[in-house]
C-alpha cells in the first residue's frame, strides 16, 4: 500500500461570530490516496466548502482552524507559516470554484491571469508562460488556444470559462485539486462534458481530486469514494458503489431517496423532513436526530462509530448493510 497523499485527522474549523461559535467543520477525518477521486457531499451549509478552504489554508476570519491535523505528503499543514502555505497553494494543491464568472478577473486577459499563476511559483518569462498556458488550454479542450490568450473572460462562454479555470488549476501540475461544485453553475449538458473531461485529466496526470457537490448523482459518476457530510461532521464514508447501494446512515438514505435518478420508477421522491440545523444551536448527541425516522432516546448521546468493511458511519441505529 502506498503512502497516503492526504491524512486529515479531527479537523475543526470554527467561525467565532458575534452570535456565537459556528462549528462549520467539527472533527472531520479522512484519508486520500494519490490519484484518488473523493466525493464530498452534503446539504447546503454542511461545511463542505469550509473543509476545502481549510485544506488549502484559505479560511477567512472570523473563521479559524481550531484543532486537528492536515498531513499532506507527510507535511503538517495546520500551523504552517503563511509563506510556505502560499508556495504550496496552486503548485501542489489547487482549487477550482463554483462560478467561473466570478473567479476570473474580468479586466485581465486570461493569458495574464495564467502567467501570474505560473510566475507565482517559478521564474518564467512571459513568452514561456504563454506557451505553457496555451498548451494547458488545449488540453482542457479550448480550440485555437494560443490566439485566445489575449481574450478576456467575458469573451468565453460559461463552460469555456470553467475550462480556463480548470486549466489554471492544472497549470503547475498539482498533486491534489479541490473542486468546489465546479459544474453547478453550468448547463446540464456542459456539466456532463466537464465532469467527464475532469475525470480523464485527473487520471492522465495522476492528480487526486476532492469533488465537492450537493448532488450524489454527480459524485457517483465520478468518485471512487464518498464522504457524506452533515453539520460539520462526516457521518458516512466508503466506496461509492457500496454506499449508494446500501447506505449505513439514515441521512445518506434520505439523500438517496430524494434523487430522481436513484429512485425506482413509480416510487415517490421523498425529501428529508425538516431543515439543516443551525450550527449555533446543535442538539446534543446526533445532530441529525431531530429529522431522523430511526431516532430514539439513545440519540441524545454522541453517536458511536460503526465500522463495516471499508465503510464507516456515525450512528446509533445504522441501517443494515447488505454485506
Amino acid at each position: 500500500m502506498t503512502a497516503p497523499l492526504l491524512e486529515v485527522e479531527g479537523l475543526r474549523t470554527h467561525f467565532l461570530t458575534r452570535a456565537g461559535v459556528a462549528k462549520a467543520v467539527d472533527g472531520v477525518s479522512f484519508v486520500l490516496q494519490p490519484g484518488e477521486i473523493l466525493g464530498l457531499v452534503g446539504e447546503s451549509g454542511s461545511g463542505k466548502s469550509v473543509t476545502g478552504f481549510s485544506l488549502i489554508g484559505l479560511v477567512d476570519p472570523p473563521g479559524r482552524i481550531v484543532g486537528g491535523s492536515i498531513r499532506f505528503a507527510g507535511q503538517e499543514l495546520v500551523g504552517l507559516p503563511a509563506e510556505q502555505m502560499r508556495a504550496l497553494r496552486g503548485r501542489r494543491i489547487a482549487m477550482v470554484f463554483q462560478d467561473p464568472q466570478a473567479t476570473l478577473n474580468p479586466v485581465l486577459t486570461i493569458g495574464t491571469q495564467m502567467a501570474l499563476a505560473l510566475q507565482a511559483h517559478d521564474r518564467v518569462s512571459d513568452r514561456a508562460a504563454a506557451e505553457r498556458a496555451a498548451t494547458m488550454l488545449t488540453r482542457v479542450g479550448i480550440p485555437d488556444a494560443a490566439a485566445r490568450l489575449g481574450n478576456y473572460p467575458h469573451e468565453f462562454s460559461g463552460g469555456m470559462r470553467q475550462r480556463v479555470a480548470i486549466a489554471m488549476a492544472l497549470l503547475n501540475g498539482p498533486e491534489l485539486i479541490i473542486a468546489d461544485e465546479p459544474t453547478t453553475a453550468l448547463d446540464v449538458s456542459i456539466q456532463a462534458q466537464i465532469l467527464h473531461e475532469m475525470k480523464a485529466l485527473a487520471a492522465e496526470s495522476g492528480t487526486a481530486l476532492i469533488w465537492i457537490s450537493h448532488d450524489l448523482a454527480t459524485v457517483s459518476a465520478l468518485a471512487h469514494r464518498v464522504l457524506v457530510m452533515y453539520a460539520g461532521r462526516i457521518v458516512e464514508s466508503g466506496p461509492v458503489g457500496a454506499v449508494l447501494r446500501a447506505p449505513l446512515h439514515p441521512y445518506t438514505r434520505g439523500l438517496l431517496d430524494s434523487l430522481p435518478a436513484m429512485t425506482e420508477p413509480g416510487r415517490r421522491l421523498r425529501q428529508i423532513p425538516g431543515t439543516a440545523p443551525s450550527l449555533l444551536a446543535l442538539p446534543p448527541g446526533c445532530p441529525f436526530a431531530p429529522r431522523c425516522p430511526r431516532a430514539d432516546a439513545a440519540c441524545t448521546a454522541p453517536p458511536p462509530r460503526v465500522d463495516h468493511a471499508e465503510r464507516r458511519a456515525l450512528c446509533h441505529h445504522p441501517l443494515e448493510a447488505a454485506a
Binding site: L58, R86, A87, R89, R91, M95, L104, L108, L116, A120
Partner: peptide, 21 residues
C-alpha cells in the same frame, strides 16, 4: 470577491494580488 480568493488559491502573493488584481 471570488476573484481574489481564486488568485490566492493559485498561490499569488498578497502583494501581487493587490498590485495586479
Amino acid at each position: 470577491t471570488d476573484t481574489v480568493k481564486f488568485a490566492r488559491a493559485a498561490g499569488l502573493s498578497d502583494l501581487t494580488i493587490l498590485r495586479r488584481h
